[in-house]
Simulated scan of single mutants.
Amino acid sequence: MKRLTAAAGSNLPVGPYSQAVISGNLVFTAGQIPVIPGQHIQPETFEQQVRQTLRNLETVLQAAGSDFDHVVKVNGYLTDPAQLEPYNRVYAEMLGHAPPARTTVCVSLWGVALEIECIAEVIDHRLRV
């Protein structure tokens, strides 16, 4: 296994965990939140927060040798059932061209409106373990 503790251009983990773990030809990401890297703030609207969260996820995927085209499973955590429609709209813009399997649930989170994690195929063969 290969562990990525902090991808360049991403937020540092807020606890003792890796942002991604590569095992074989798969990368498993930690949940990403809508904090803008280097600024420690969140966008104002929920749709902007979804976009930022997905950008953060994409940064981690790229550091692990993958991208959105190779995501096989997404887990999304929202804090309000009313968020599902705007979540789906932004999600479709960024991942709708080849939608992976997905689970979305409503939960209570600490100081954020959503969190997204995924599993993807590693396409950069130099990073496979």
Rank of each mutant, 00 (worst) to 15 (best):
Tyr87Thr: 02
Arg102Lys: 15
Tyr87Pro: 03
Thr59Met: 08
Pro81Val: 11
Gln39Cys: 08
Val90Ile: 15
Asn88Lys: 14
Asn56Gly: 06
Leu57Gly: 01
Ile33Thr: 08
Lys73His: 14
Trp110Glu: 12
Val72Arg: 05
Ala63Cys: 11
Val21Met: 11
Val35Trp: 10
Ala92Asp: 14
Leu26Cys: 12
Val60Gln: 00
Pro81Gly: 10
Cys106Glu: 14
Cys118Lys: 00
Tyr77Trp: 13
Arg89Ala: 13
Phe28Pro: 05
Asp69Ile: 08
Val27Gly: 02
Leu84Phe: 14
Ala92Gly: 07
Glu115Cys: 10
Gln32Ile: 09
Thr103Gln: 09
Val112Thr: 12
Ala92Leu: 11
Pro34Leu: 05
Ala92Tyr: 08
Val72Glu: 04
Gln62Asp: 05
Arg102Ala: 15
Glu115Ala: 14
Asn56Ile: 07
Ser23Tyr: 07
Arg89Val: 06
Thr104His: 03
Val90Cys: 07
Ile33Gly: 02
Thr103His: 09
His97Val: 13
Leu61His: 03
Pro100Leu: 12
Gly96Val: 11
Tyr87Glu: 06
Ser66Trp: 05
Pro99Met: 08
Pro34Cys: 09
Leu109Met: 09
Pro43Cys: 07
His40Tyr: 15
Ala92Ser: 14
Phe28Lys: 00
Leu57Thr: 01
Val74His: 00
Thr45Pro: 02
Ser23His: 10
Ala63Pro: 02
Asn25Ile: 08
Trp110Thr: 11
Arg55Val: 13
Asn56Trp: 10
Glu93Leu: 12
Val21Gln: 05
Gln39Thr: 13
Cys106Ser: 13
Ala63Ile: 05
Val50Lys: 00
Ile116Cys: 02
Ser23Leu: 12
Cys106Ile: 15
Tyr91Val: 06
Ile22Trp: 03
Val90Glu: 00
Phe28His: 08
Ile36Phe: 09
Thr45Ser: 15
Val90His: 04
Glu85Asn: 12
Pro43Arg: 06
Ile41Ala: 09
Glu44Thr: 10
Gly65Asp: 06
Gln83Trp: 05
Asp67Ile: 08
Trp110Arg: 13
Asn88Tyr: 09
Ala30Thr: 01
Gly31Arg: 03
Val74Thr: 01
Gly76Trp: 02
Leu84Asp: 03
Ile116Asp: 03
Gly38Trp: 09
Ala64Ile: 02
Phe28Val: 10
Pro43Met: 08
Ile119Gln: 04
Ile41Gln: 14
Val21Asp: 05
Met94Val: 11
Pro86Cys: 11
Val60Glu: 01
Glu115Asn: 13
Arg51Asp: 07
Tyr87His: 06
Asp67Cys: 14
Gln83Cys: 09
Pro37Tyr: 07
Gly111Ser: 13
Leu78Ile: 07
Pro81Ala: 13
Ala98Ser: 14
Asp67Glu: 12
Arg55Ala: 10
Leu95Ser: 02
Val90Pro: 00
Thr45Val: 09
Asn56His: 08
Tyr91Asn: 03
Tyr87Ser: 04
Ile22Tyr: 00
Tyr77Glu: 08
